[in-house]
Design a protein around this nucleic acid. Sequence first.
DNA 1: TACGAATCGAGAGCAGTGCTCTCGGCTGCC
DNA 2: GGCAGCCGAGAGCACTGCTCTCGATTCGTA
Lengths: 232, 232
Amino acid sequence: MPAPSIRARVRAEMLDEIKAVALRHLATDGANLSLRAVARDMGMVSSAIYRYFPSRDDLLTALIIEAYDALGEAVEAAADDPDLHDLRARWMAACRAARGWALAHPAEYALLYGSPVPGYAAPDDTVGPAQRPPLTLVGLLRDGLAAGLLSPPPAGELTASLHDDLTDLADVFFPGLPPALLARGMAGWTQLFGLISFELFGRLNRTIEHRDEYFDHQVGLLADLIGLPPPR
Amino acid sequence: MPAPSIRARVRAEMLDEIKAVALRHLATDGANLSLRAVARDMGMVSSAIYRYFPSRDDLLTALIIEAYDALGEAVEAAADDPDLHDLRARWMAACRAARGWALAHPAEYALLYGSPVPGYAAPDDTVGPAQRPPLTLVGLLRDGLAAGLLSPPPAGELTASLHDDLTDLADVFFPGLPPALLARGMAGWTQLFGLISFELFGRLNRTIEHRDEYFDHQVGLLADLIGLPPPR
DNA sequence: TACGAATCGAGAGCAGTGCTCTCGGCTGCC
DNA sequence: GGCAGCCGAGAGCACTGCTCTCGATTCGTA
């Protein structure tokens, strides 16, 4: 492999620096990222940014993919912590990791899970990284089932067409996973998203002060619903 | 009471028309509402809008309050349907009403529950209307408890400080409601928000086709967790 | 090594935005 | 009837994303 030319290396550094500056702006000024402000911060003129990102949306997409991967990595690392042998502890750790990342990167979380920007349609590059957290959670359920720690929910509780939808979905990622268990995993993911969003978007203000305990309790409730083995 | 002057009546009509046009723009163009576009649609010049709303944020706030009230009214009406005597049926109806309203008014739902606009801080006028849906849900639990249809969850499952937070919160709206039951009600509200947001923001695309059944199933799961009497 | 091609930053410019201010015409109240 | 308050139009400011052109620099290659 030939050494990358100076120009190519400078270009890669510029891409990284633009993303870093844009992230800083996102954190301070909120979601409406200004390309011109980013350019000013870099001592450049706004049109120069377009040498690196064809449009503002493309820059946002790059940031979104990086954020999805950072969140996904945090969740996966927590779920795969070798110190945790307890299934419920792994589930809990994954959820806490997601919340911790979100609290540490609120602007990026809002970028990922807030209302979609009007004209913006998520490109296909984002769907893979976006699936990492929910796949991690459902993967824990598959592990638990394989280890005999989980009993599959009664099959009769799903309608036929919903059973088919969930079976098709399971076949893509977790062949053989009982569809009712997949539904419970998605319920857990939905709850996790709701808990984090409510906390981050201020819906817990002036109501819940002890956020950590509230979060743990609510996640624990859903762990019970899913059928994870009780703690201890 | 004196008849309102012509000018006052015209002004009220203008306020309504501006809001109506803004809502149309919100539905078609997405969240970044353009005051100038609204003015153009009304055959006015942009500065004239400022005679009625001091800023774009104030117009948005007016729309938000109206949307919160419309959603709250839909949920309350569904929960109080006199034809429903079954507690679980009322819970189900309330949740379905929220989803139905959101699907019918996606832009307004995004305005209410999407990522908060950067500079925008929700004024106090919005907190009352915003609380109507969750209060309706928790109110159902209070009714069920009073009617002996619900058994309060074991008290020992909450930490002391979380117990205090929830007791304080309950005292404001539902004095005497067991805090653990309040937590379950909030879990239901969180789940409802998550389900609707995921569906509306496209996270169910290419995975779940039978959305109605999926929604009913997931809401039913949480109803079980809360301890609502089984169906039939 | 020299030359043509590709890349890059600067600058001007376009269409759009929220918002302010001033200037007239109109309305409503004393 | 007159005066104060309301209202729409218009100009203007600072800002945005984005396009285009123009030199300067760098690259790959002959």
